[in-house]
């Protein structure tokens, strides 16, 4: 009984802690700056902060950059992880387990450790300050390979056999049997990848320095630190604006996402 009560209290505390910055941001963004630290139920509502923020920095361009970045990363990750995962799951070749262990090892390397090394590589390739350079270190994903491999291994061997007997080639089987059966995993993984790269900050900050390449996160920080002083209303409006699409998508597809996560075995 008491542990149950404790659980409920803890849940509420965590929920409030988590949501309070968001609530504050919503409050501040939708009211004139005079009310940023002054709460009153009679405070007038306004959209002016959003208009200011939108005009004060090239957010449209940042949106485009982020969308391109996330799109490139996602497509490349699916395209690269799928065949790799299939090979690890269903093909036998010498050294398979060793290579797979190396892939897993990569999971333990925090991306930030490689910041300097990656910068040097990009400089050598001559692609510093391009959207491609933000994406490049992430195009192959050990996590994606691992997750898809686990999913592919769960596809019954008899389905593969049936498709083979019916005349499907290797690629035909991958495309018509394995990929469709792994859809929940693609959805769940895609979601994790999109939110990670939408929110990624440090690497894009290091590798970009112009409006045409900066993603939203970097654009927002540049905007918040230099241009505006500390006008919280405009900063929170900009923040809501940049995280809005992702937040909205989460809320709309919450149920499908949770179901996908369950089926993909990520919790």
């Amino acid at each position: 009984m008491s542990t149950r009560a404790l659980e409920i209290v803890a849940t509420w505390v965590l929920a409030i802690l988590w949501v309070s910055p968001l609530v504050y941001a919503v409050w501040t963004a939708f009211h004139p700056s005079a009310y940023a630290t002054h709460f009153s139920l009679l405070a007038p509502w306004t959209l002016a902060n959003f208009a200011h923020a939108w005009e004060a920095a090239p957010f449209a361009r940042y949106f485009l950059n982020t969308t391109l970045l996330v799109g490139v990363v996602l497509v490349a990750q699916f395209a690269l992880c799928t065949p790799a995962a299939f090979a690890f799951a269903r093909m036998t070749f010498r050294g398979r387990d060793t290579v797979f262990a190396l892939v897993l090892l990569q999971l333990m390397v925090a991306p930030d450790v490689l910041l300097v090394a990656n910068y040097r590589t990009m400089a050598r390739l001559g692609v510093v300050d391009t959207i491609f350079s933000i994406a490049l270190p992430y195009l192959g994903s050990a996590f994606g390979i691992f997750l898809l491999r686990q999913t592919f291994r769960q596809v019954p061997q008899e389905l593969d056999d049936a498709a083979r007997l019916e005349g499907s080639s290797l690629l035909g089987r991958l495309w018509r049997v394995y990929v469709p059966l792994a859809r929940p995993t693609y959805l769940a993984y895609g979601l994790v990848a999109v939110s990670y790269h939408w929110n990624n900050f440090l690497w894009p900050l290091v590798i970009t320095n112009s409006v045409t390449t900066r993603p939203l996160t970097v654009g927002l920080s540049v905007f918040a630190s230099t241009d505006q002083g500390i006008d919280w209303s405009i900063i929170t409006a900009a923040t809501l604006m940049t995280s809005g699409p992702l937040l909205l998508a989460f809320l709309l597809f919450q149920r499908q996402f949770v179901a996908s996560f369950m089926r993909a075995g990520i919790r």
Partner: peptide, 14 residues
């Protein structure tokens, strides 16, 4: 030139 019926039926669920 063979067709096969599997023990699990091996129908494609999708």
């Amino acid at each position: 030139g063979v067709a096969m019926v599997f023990q699990s039926y091996a129908l494609f669920p999708h």
